[in-house]
Design a protein around this nucleic acid. Sequence first.
RNA 1: GCGCCCGUAGCUCAGGUGGAUAGAGCGGCGGUUUCCUAAACCGCAGGCCGCAGGUUCGAAUCCUGCCGGGCGCACCA
Length: 607
Amino acid sequence: MRRRKSTSPRPTNRRPDPPAPRLADGTGIPRGPRFMNVLNRLRAAFGAVTPEGGDPQVFRAAVRATADPKFGDYQANGCMALAKALQQNPRELASAVREAVDLEPTAGKPEIAGPGFLNVRLHDEWVAEQLSVLLNDPAHGLTPPESPRTVVIDFSSPNVAKPMHVGHIRSTVIGDSLARIFEALGHKVVRDNHLGDWGSQFGMILWGWKNHRDDDAYATDPVAELSRLYRLAQARIKAGEKEVEEAARAETAKLHAGDAENRELWTRFMPFCLKALQTIYDRLGVRFDVELGESFYDPMLAEVVADLEAKGLAEESEGATVAFVAGMKAPFIIRKRDGAYNYGTTDLATIRYRGQTWDPDQVLYVVDSRQGDHFKQLFDVARRWGYDGAALEHVAFGTILGADRKPFKTRDGDVVGLESLLDEAVAEARKIVDANSPGIDPETRGRIAEIVGLGAIKYADLSQNRLSDYVFDWSKMLAMNGNTATYLQYAYARIQSIFRRGEIRPEQVRERRPPLILTHPAERGLGVRLLRLPEVLELAALELKPNILTDYLFDLASAYSTFFEDCPVLKAESAERRDSRLALCDLTAQTLKFGLGLLGIDVVDQM
RNA sequence: GCGCCCGUAGCUCAGGUGGAUAGAGCGGCGGUUUCCUAAACCGCAGGCCGCAGGUUCGAAUCCUGCCGGGCGCACCA
């Protein structure tokens, strides 16, 4: 697997697994009603019996869930690689590990298979016991990390003064989900919306305002009018009108220089712009801890450049002040020929401010992959500047494409507005709800459609590997099965339906703490999966990939659907069985709701 | 030209740090509903993992070269 480019050192790079739990009796066996991260438990056990000459960290890392259930639930693959290094027979090595390792009470002795795999099958009783613990665990099996980290997540970051469009959804949704996942794992998260409120796009708006404004239109809808002016300026510059380009640049420079008129206009426009953005964020359920835009850093820029110059990191080149980065031809510009600062300068000031304010362990920039070169330069300069305390990571993502594999546009060729995209998703969802569930009252159908529609959009984005471009496809997105939010929401709704029909509340099942029975393959398959959430979240956070979570949830929902078909709940053959299955239903519902919540997606009780 | 990303089933995509017979969904074909939501479930067909070398017990995964596609490369952000 390729590693992310980490151009600055990661203090906790390859974060170690949480240490094995400290145990009072020294047996290696945890006592008491405490949920255990299964993977970490097994890794600790195998790591402890790493053969002489092996690296325990490597050996334990080779433990993972099996790809195929016929090989058991988990497998330890470390013996083969180690045998090679030690020039020993892998099966003999595996045999020695098998004898030494103690997995009780979690599992029995592993089985040796193939060239030296060690296959682990969890004890049904242990799985059942863990599920009972999980049933009443508000933390969903998550335990606080040994050393919580501070993670700044820079995401969404739209330019103000123009409506958000489809291009903003990925950063917003991926960043929000990563924030939720890190928080759930017990880390401190700072969600920062680095607004584009100070750049040259504002100069274009100012130029438009002074030359082409429509006062009536502004009175009616300020943001729409400002957006029109921006697009007008942009179009004329793009058409090669140098004088417009120069004029807009001059307006930007005047704004930055403190020109009274431009500052007044900026101050006047901003509240409208922010309010428009807030409307979308509210609808998406996205919030920020801070929204420190480019304007916030403006007062620091001159000093940043002076400091870089003083430290010999910046130099003059073709009239601009730049920093060169080894291996890259284009310089990193921190002051333009005309004296104005640009986003490189702002980003450096931001790194310093964040370091001084939060002292983060990790800073994530959830930004389009096309800005890769910029971040490579930025991180390099920042490190040489001395801000190397945090791991700076560009969480890159691909472009959203239309069916023609070109950037997603409307039929008229405009960029698709985010608001209309959401509206369309909700309208599509509404059609399906109306068709499938006419018995539900219209108002409730409307609420369901909103949740299902937004869920579809978010999930389509999150379930894809970030790095690849993705083809936007309505039919796929709102499909009722397959790896979609709708499928997961449906599984959840079916569970709620069982509780309604049985006239029983989940809380009653939880209080009863019924013993879990896992003798049916569908029961066991579901049960083993329910224990995996903590390890999945740890991996998703490590890889910075929400699609690891969506894959898990889809797998869980599939296992539930199989269970639903094969295992009657309310009409189970005994009261014990019924209670056990109700508990499995509730656990699944809890996990789906919690997991979807970490993706920023809601559930509905019926659909 | 330099750099980054991508190439896996007809289509859209998964595929931890190299592991067992490469997986889903859609589409196709065939089944399942006196039973808790059929927005579901079960089965079948469908692959030279872009190509060629290399590394090794083992490669979709790592290395090299090539082919094909996307993107970025001095004052926009």
